[in-house]
Structure formats: C-alpha cells, structure tokens
Simulated scan of single mutants.
Amino acid sequence: MKITVLSGGVGGARFLRGLRDAISPTDEVTAVVNVGDDMWLTGLRIAPDLDSIMYTLAGENDERRGWGRVGETERVSGELRAYGVGWPWFTLGDLDIGTHLTRSHLLREGLPLSEVTARIASRWPLGVRLIPATDDEVETHVVTAEATMHFQEWWTRHRASIPALSFDYRGVAESTPARGVLDAITEADAVLLAPSNPVVSIGPILAIPGIRTALAATSARVVGVSPIISGAVVRGMADACLTAIGVSTTADAVALHYGARSNGGVLDDWLVDNSDSQLTSAIEAAGIRAHVVPLWMRDPESSATLGRHALAAAVG
C-alpha cells in the first residue's frame, strides 16, 4: 500500500511516527512536508518542519521541548549572540547547526532541496520518505497592522500574540512541486492530511500550483485528521492562525475550511475526536464523511492507533 501524508510541525511529526508503527512491512509512506517555515539565518538554510519530522522519526528529537535534538548544547548560538548576529530569540542547538550546515553546503553545490533532504535523511532508518513540498524557496510571512514579518518571528518571538491580518506565502505563485510530489499523490492508495496547522503547515502545501489538481485527480481517498479537539488546539497557536482567516477553532469549521473534494475542496473523510461527535452532522452535510475516533496522541500506542484509524477510513 502506498500512503502519502501532507504534513508539517510537531503534530505532523508525531502522526507520522504513529503511522509508521501502524503499517505493515510492505507498505510505503511518503511525507510531503511544508517548507513555509524555512528561512536563511546567519548564512544557513533552516528547515524547521523537515528537521522536526526527521528527528522525530529518527528518535533524536527533544520530546520535552518538542523541537530540536535531544541532548543539545547551545554554545554556537551563544557565540552568535555575542557577535550580534542572527535572531537572539531563535536558538539553534549545536547538533542542529550541523544539519543546517550540511543542507546549506549541498544547496550551494547546486542540489535541489528534495535531493538534499534525501541525503540528510539517509543517515537514519526513518521508515518514511521525506519530500519537501517544493524545491523553490517559499516562505510564510505574517501581515499585521504594524508590520509584516517572517512567520518564525511572529510565532517564536511574539508567540502569535500580535493579531495577524493575513498570511503571505511568498514565492508560492512561481513555485512548482518538488520532484516526486505529484506522483506520490496521484499514485497513492491513501492520501492523509496530518493533524498539522491548517493555515501555516498544510496551507502553504495546498497553495503550491499543481498540488490541489493532483489531489482532485488521485483515485485514493483523501482523509484528514482534525488538529482541533473540544474546541481547542492540540498544540501550538493554530487558533491565532484560524482566527486571522475567519475560521472558528472547531473540528467542523476546519473540515469546512478544507472543503469536500466532491465540491472543489480536498477532503473525502475527516477524523474527529470522540468529544466532538456532535459536530459530525455539519461535516457530513458538507459532503465529507466523518469518523469519530480517539485523536489524542499521548504515547506511541495511541499514535499508532490513530494511524490505523486514518488508514481504515481511507480504505473503508
């Protein structure tokens, strides 16, 4: 079975880890990963979502912080601050910098990001193929009343406390899907939308020309997993993002935001938590088949169970 997952962020990383544990040895999982969080910083190309997913699947992520490598030191970041270089509020661990140095070196050698990602990821037996959604530089910027800033500044420095007016996926109109992305979607037996931030993780992927067309064309069912449980975000500040685009922080509102594939949207099925069972009528009325299952990924076992539920919806 060929399974393709549109993914980004910590929620996407944990979902992919659970899905990997749920599949059979003959199944293949491809993750199409958001690059909207990416940026150049102190001469290095930083790819937060690609790295978070890679470290999580490799068992190298810091579970306590939710980002970066386990057992990190931060001596280099301290030196950068002493020199007045970079963003003092955006700390890079020393091991993480090794990843960024490798990526930046290979990019400057002329390799596309997808090939660079494959080389970096080959260090560990991830059990999932990682492909950036595009090889082009697409970066999410946040428009506020006072200024426009890179998403990482809004998210990490300001903790999404400044009301956003809109989100600008810079460069997306001129971008193209990375090699292998369209085939991964159109040839899949199941396409899953991870419980990632709908606006800044999944949104930039769907905005890349050709992605929605591939989703419309695939014979696989497209199954999404709600990142909202009981009217609250599972992790992070996705509610601030949803508010900015006029979408309520509820599981049914996010489903309607994605829309039914039968009506020009992207979803065939939508998984909601047991606590949100009362929302299924609105989802079904929009042409999306709803499934009520436990969504909390509290440990490897519950994450794998969620992966099995998503696959069951895709083949059922």
Rank of each mutant, 00 (worst) to 15 (best):
G8C: 09
G9P: 01
A13R: 00
R14I: 05
I23S: 01
T26H: 13
V29W: 02
D38I: 07
Y55N: 06
G66E: 01
W67H: 03
R69G: 00
V76P: 01
R81W: 04
W89N: 10
D94T: 08
T102V: 06
L106M: 14
L113R: 11
V116D: 10
T117V: 13
L126A: 13
V128T: 12
A133S: 13
T134W: 05
V138T: 02
V142M: 07
A147P: 00
T148S: 13
M149H: 05
Q152M: 11
W155V: 00
R157A: 15
P163V: 14
T176Q: 14
T186R: 15
V191W: 01
V191C: 03
P195T: 12
S196E: 01
N197D: 15
N197S: 12
G210E: 02
G210I: 12
G210A: 13
I211T: 04
I211R: 09
R212E: 13
T213E: 15
V222L: 00
G231A: 05
V233Q: 08
A238M: 13
T243H: 14
I245T: 03
V247K: 03
V254G: 10
H257I: 06
R261N: 07
G264I: 12
G264P: 03
L267C: 03
N274W: 04
L279M: 13
A282C: 09
A285K: 13
L295P: 05
W296R: 14
P300Y: 09
S302C: 04
A304N: 11
L306Q: 08
H309K: 02
A313I: 07
